[in-house]
Design a protein around this nucleic acid. Sequence first.
RNA 1: GGCCACGUGGCGGAGUGGUUACGCAACGGUCUGCAAAACCGUGCACUCGGGUUCGAUUCCCGACGUGGCCUCCA
Length: 467
Amino acid sequence: MQLRLYDTLTKEKRPFTPLDPSNVRMYVCGPTVYDFAHIGNARPVIVFDVLFRLLRHIYGADHVTYVRNITDVDDKINDRAARDFPALPLNEAIRKVTELTEKQFHDDVDALGALRPTVEPRATEHIAEMRSIIEKLVQGGFAYVAEDHVLFSPQAMNAENSILPRYGALANRSLDEMIAGARVDVAPYKRDSTDFVLWKPAKPGEPSWPSPSGISVPGRPGWHIECSAMAWKHLGEQFDIHGGGIDLVFPHHENELAQSACAFHSDRMANVWMHNGFLQVESEKMSKSLGNFITIRESLADWPGEVLRLNMLKTHYRSPIDWTAKALEESAKTLDDWYEIAADVKADRPSDAVIDALSDDLNTPQMIAALHGLRNIAASGSDRDRGEFAATLRMLGFLSESAAEWKGRKQQASGVDAKQINDLISNRTAARARKDFKESDRIRDELAAMGVVIKDSKEGTTWEFAR
RNA sequence: GGCCACGUGGCGGAGUGGUUACGCAACGGUCUGCAAAACCGUGCACUCGGGUUCGAUUCCCGACGUGGCCUCCA
């Protein structure tokens, strides 16, 4: 089935045609590394990992380039560095914060079953590219220097009657609306309220670099220019897919698009703009003030990463998702079942039904329905059926452990001694053999109190942990 | 205030102009000393009001409700 993707810019689902099938290129906005990533940050990581895997399946693993940046220059990083490492010079403190946070982020997303992107560029290593784009924008008349800042002018962009896209097209709003809706104080050096910063002077002690466009004092980049620079360096002037959270549509992606299109005199930056919906926790917006702020790290203490992964995919990526304990329990139960059936099976080839579901704009709920179908066939079918089920799950980033490892996690988490359980079960079996059902039921209750569920079958008694 | 998205059965959640989503829970059955597990089966739906249509949960208009963006945010 032909891959179809929904494009935020044109607001339609349409067939995906790569610019170059031998090198399909995708850029996704990554983390700003100043603290543990939260469960909301996990959504784009998982969603675009699934897309990455699908593209690799369709075009070949060596023919997809996935770039996810790391933003390591930001006020929040500076604040954190000053707070956590007050004794160090700021630059050193910043490096400590970004290195530590980057490691945390990698550990977390690895646990979620996400493949590492092809390239993970850091903003601070692309200052030259940023300066180069800024110079182009100033020379082209789209940006100007004012009080040691460089500002981009959306008005100038829209005044030019050429192939350039209209500023505001991605967020679907006009410049007039933005001017009318401006609610922040406009900096005095801006010509228009809609102008945004490409480069600004650094405060003393902050990380800084030589400025572009003849500005004599050192400075630092604005937020949006980073992504334009990193995408250009690693994917070229135009590429196939640009992704991120829906909250990035405006202003971040609108501005990125404007910068790149104007700098390269291009009608587009990416062919498809994809945005994942927001995540709520137990029907409430996640926020520090509500106290329902959940980090990936905290979630991983309660659930295997694959449970979080499956849970995330139960909802279509563009819809809002309500993150609840109930849903997680359900996901855990589903994975227990899948592990039992397929974890120790030799993988065959992935199922077309699942590829087809994903090819329809990443319809992961449909994909899961297809997985349930494969599961039922595998449970009573041939080794080949189980091989197909296993291969499909592995392609999607599941079944990274053996069935024993998976089961062992729960035992470990419960702190219960396996030998003690087996002894109790032996005693119960003996009691049942002499028809002492009062005693056998007592033992069963005792095990239940430990969170152990008994399963009797013709072959004997097995047990597992209840959730 | 402006812009946008969404409103499906007890819960989660796809999809479709006329025909089964899927999963969890529930209920019935098989099995069992009784249960659990497993397996088989069953029921339950498309916010409201108009319109278009032979026919709308699906298209259009309106109302109500929920969420998002407009400011750092995945």
